[in-house]
Simulated assay, not measured.
Amino acid sequence: MRKWEIFKKISIRELILYLLIFVNFAVLVFLIFFLQKSINSNPNLVFPPDVRGKNLVEATDILAKNNFKVVIGGILIDKNKDPLMVLDQNPLNTKVPLGSIIFLWINMPQIVKIPDLIHKDTGEARNILEKLGLRVEIINGENGYIVRQIPESGFFIEKNATVILYSYTPQEPTYTSYTTEPYTGGQ
């Protein structure tokens, strides 16, 4: 009789609650089993091709040829991988209906924000850009100061890209000789 004493301590409400939890669990197990059988037996479900490690253009072509739609799901940055390489995809190793959307995560090239170099000395501007990993082309000479830059400040560009700087070198004023005779108005 001792094993039934536990039920004397449980109220009817608790007993009904435990019974409902058990029934819900049994239904969940049944649904999982049933859905797994129906998914595995559905001929319209296929595994999407694995396009990780391919460049974005190639990956998009492969998925499109297999009747999938592509959406860029995110951007990752891996300095050791090529720019625009697919680093991950979802779904992967899961059967999905033909025509499903495949999300791709791509590697972005390292980018830098262009600083404002206007009115800076050309040497200082060159040093700033080279420290950012950019190439520099200076138009109108290496002396003077920067009056224009392409791209403008605030833009983002890929490392190793070229920034064009336009310099201006002020000229020393030249003085001409003059006379001390008064101007007579050309008479």
Rank of each mutant, 00 (worst) to 15 (best):
N24P: 02
V71M: 08
V29L: 14
W105A: 02
I62T: 12
P91F: 07
F30L: 09
P91W: 06
Q89R: 01
N55S: 03
N107H: 04
F34T: 11
N93I: 00
V23S: 05
L20W: 09
P49R: 03
S38V: 15
I102N: 00
K81Q: 12
K69N: 15
I39T: 09
F34D: 09
I72G: 02
A26G: 08
D50M: 05
I75A: 00
M108D: 11
P91N: 06
D82R: 12
I62D: 01
V70G: 00
Q89T: 02
A26V: 13
V27P: 00
I62H: 05
N107F: 03
P97R: 12
G53D: 08
V51D: 01
A64H: 10
Q36N: 15
K37Y: 15
S41C: 01
G73A: 12
V96M: 04
G53T: 10
G99M: 11
P83G: 09
I75S: 02
K81A: 14
A59R: 01
N40M: 10
N66I: 03
K81F: 10
P43G: 07
E58K: 07
V57Q: 11
D61Q: 10
N93V: 00
F33C: 01
L45C: 06
K95F: 07
A26M: 12
L76D: 14
L20E: 09
L63H: 09
P97M: 08
L31P: 01
K95N: 03
R52V: 12
P83T: 10
I62S: 04
N66H: 13
N93L: 07
L63G: 05
N67K: 14
F47G: 00
P83Y: 08
T60C: 02
